[in-house]
Design a protein around this nucleic acid. Structure first.
Lengths: 201, 201
DNA sequence: TCTAAAATCGGAACACGTTCCAGTTTGCCC
DNA sequence: GGGCAAACTGGAACGTGTTCCGATTTTAGA
């Protein structure tokens, strides 16, 4: 444990290590953004991040871990950016749809990157459980916050259940779009229909 | 076109070709059932099906195509088996939950096979669109039939929308289970909650 | 039955994820 | 500053999906 704070959930190590980790994730995002999942080749990432292949594997034990970690970082950024934006819309359904569509549009503006990250997410097995869980929680909390803005009613179990279902649909829609089975418009439709069904009150 | 019926959607070719195709899919299922996605190795499939590697690729242009085609065959079997079983349950929600849980249980009884097929399904890109679409239609029609048993009301657009959302949740749940993030019980729960939310009338 | 085209075979070859290793550098403690 | 353990480097090596090719077999048509 190199940090003085032994309770920290994430121990990022020395400054040099943090820097390497950042360079690796930056290279990952850059390559993914440019060429998608297939372009994120471990040798290429290592070269672009200026580390040896073995070092890359020391930081991230597989390509999937690497991409899911990148996803996590991006998602945290998105969530923070969204956190202090006012949420327009009167009804719950309207607000949720607005936020989801905005987020989806953001992802669709960088299709290759989205493809790479989504694919990795879908392919991740139990060994990536921690990172995946993190992302799932982030999404659910993002949705419940939109559903029950500050000051309003308590977040109920049903709210959480609904948020999870919406998350599932969003994921399916995203996969459909990423794999070229649905258009962007269809993806938006799919989410909108689900939200309206789930939040009709 | 080797068939006299030029309108046939599927042209399966000569008897020898049908036989090879069947042997390949049988080998795929056997290997998947025994060792999951990773065990379905193209050389192993070719050997077990007693065809050359090049021939395997002539029939199925990639491992993903191969597995999705296997999924399609299995799913058709399941759907036919389900078709003439009486659907117990009074309310729509009950019937849907019963059927989905039964199907899910069936898949969970062969975890490795389910893992292999689900992974392939999630990873499939646009080049497998046809097969994927086929499977999606099968699932949706299965669900709407359960929702609106023969003789009852017409199947509405809303029914179809609901069926699609349920399908999305089912897929997400399945992926969660397959990748070891959810237990079998949680998977059942997840589906039940979604169905109850969507079919509360 | 004969022949040309298509299909199949056996196997080499290539790409990329992953592992491994010997040598070098870095960071830390005395 | 010296010594030691951990981290890093460069690169070889291996497994599996995929491609390719020359030789052989099967199929279909005249």
């Amino acid at each position: 444990m190199s940090s003085a704070n032994s309770l920290a959930v994430e121990d990022l190590g020395s400054a040099a290590q943090r820097d390497r980790r950042k360079r690796i994730l930056d290279a990952t995002i850059a390559l993914a953004s440019q060429g998608g999942f297939d372009a994120v080749q471990m040798r290429a990432v290592a070269e672009q991040a200026d580390v040896a292949l073995g070092t890359l594997y020391r930081y991230f034990p597989s390509k999937i871990h690497l991409l899911v970690s990148a996803l996590q970082r991006e998602f945290e950024r998105t969530e923070v950016a969204l956190r202090d934006k006012p949420i327009e819309g009167d009804t719950t359904a309207e607000r949720v749809i607005t936020v989801l569509k905005r987020t989806t549009r953001g992802m669709q503006s960088d299709p290759k990157l989205t493809e790479a990250l989504t694919r990795a997410f879908m392919f991740a097995d139990a060994s990536v459980q921690a990172e995946i869980h993190q992302v799932g929680m982030l999404l659910t909390s993002m949705l419940t916050r939109v559903m029950r803005p500050e000051g309003h009613d308590e977040v109920t179990d049903e709210d959480i259940a609904i948020a999870k279902v919406i998350g599932d649909v969003w994921l399916s829609a995203l996969v459909g779009w990423v794999t070229g089975r649905n258009s962007a418009a269809e993806t938006g439709q799919q989410i909108e229909v689900a939200v309206k069904l789930l939040l009709r009150d």
